[in-house]
Simulated assay, not measured.
Amino acid sequence: MTASARDIIFNHSERVAPLGLIAIPGSEELGKKVNDYLVTWSREAGYDYDNFLIENECPRFSSGDGKALIKNTVRGYDVYIIADFGNYSLEYPLFGRMNRMSPDDHFQNLKRIIQAIGGKAHRINVITPILYGGRQHRRNYRESLDCAVALQELQNMGVSNIIAFDAHDPRVCNAVPLMGFDNIIPTYQVLKALFKYVNDFKMDTDHFMVVSPDEGALNRNMYYSSVLGVDLGMFYKRRDYSQVVNGRNPIVAHEYLGNSVEGKDVFIADDIISSGESMLDIAIELKKRNAKRIFAYATYPIFTNGLEAFDKAYADGKIDYVFGTNLSYRTPELLSREWFCEVDVSKYLSYLIMALNHDMSISKVIDPHQKISALLEKHKND
């Protein structure tokens, strides 16, 4: 960021209100990284800020009840609350036993923090990289639609803006058409990490290809193929609609549509790796078609069924790298795997917060086409 940009962003007369950052329990790691960037940039711009984080606590009683405490003033602040609904590593006592925190528990903590603010803040912005209930993005028959109801609840509590990353289906924002909702796709950060960790491939139609793992992920993979100037293929899931297993119709086969992948490096992008079965099935199918190397990316690498299947796939040469962001909790075991490459999005999020705090347009931040073009040109020259 140039000195002139810092001067504009940290001009006191242009900011909405003093900036306050609240990282609720489970999101402290990301909150600290964002705070470090904000402090560094403010000092470089000539302002004496040493901390934007607002100390908070969400204690739980042994009966399961809880509350939120905010230990600094937030009166008149432009507050940004970071909530990681996917962090299952936290525990709390419940009737003498330790209980893991679920997304429901994190959402309750978020609401408790908003209650503790008590309407004193100038504006409340909620940063939820993983949308609460976001995987259930549409309603069929007599089903709940938790994400839409949660968004409406936050709006009624006074939240002005929601910032999400790579939502499973961003159309859920139609539930709150009068509230700000930004769905951010960290495309540039992903490609930057790809060039950092893998520097021995050719980015052209003869050697590289993008493949969508299913029809739902087609748009994000279409963007990658367009900006990279390479071919796009896709798989679609053929399901058995005569039965339901674990709440969904089981997949019978992955059918491929597209040009040949023979001898090419293949990049696969999705929003989440949960069990990882679909990603591994697709990698196996691509290897059957003589693909060279497989680079998988998921914004949220949660690996609900563990890492053993990916360890075996890596050892067998079925998959080469898995990329994932630091927007949600990653286990120490995952971070230690040689096949996993982390995509740091904290700087990007910090820039978004700064721009919003000064009512600056974020359209160029959301659309990184120029940055990607410069990155590709640099890679080509190198």
Rank of each mutant, 00 (worst) to 15 (best):
L145Y: 12
P93I: 10
L191S: 05
N72P: 00
F61A: 14
G247L: 05
E153S: 04
I319F: 08
G66W: 08
D316T: 05
V345F: 01
N259P: 11
G233W: 00
Y351V: 07
F201A: 04
V198K: 05
R330Y: 06
F181M: 04
S350F: 01
N99V: 13
N72C: 08
I113T: 12
Q115D: 15
N109E: 14
L232S: 09
A175L: 11
N290C: 15
K237T: 07
S274Q: 11
A298T: 08
A315W: 05
D270N: 15
E153K: 11
I372Q: 03
V190C: 09
V365N: 04
F195C: 01
Y329R: 03
A68N: 08
V230A: 04
V245M: 01
I114P: 00
E91N: 11
P177E: 08
L194M: 14
F340M: 05
L194Y: 07
G133E: 00
M354T: 07
A167P: 00
S13Q: 04
I113P: 04
G86C: 09
R293P: 05
F165V: 07
S160Q: 14
G66M: 15
G180H: 05
I82R: 00
M209R: 02
Y241W: 12
E57K: 15
Y351Q: 10
L194H: 08
E377R: 10
G180E: 03
Y49A: 00
H137P: 02
R75P: 11
V172L: 11
C58S: 08
P103A: 02
Y88R: 14
V198Q: 12
R289Q: 11
E285S: 12
D104P: 03
F310A: 00
L334W: 06
I114C: 02
K192N: 13
T128D: 03
F208P: 00
I272K: 10
L21I: 15
D271K: 07
T299D: 08
G158V: 03
N51P: 06
D281W: 08
L110E: 07
I184S: 00
N87F: 03
D50G: 13
L19W: 02
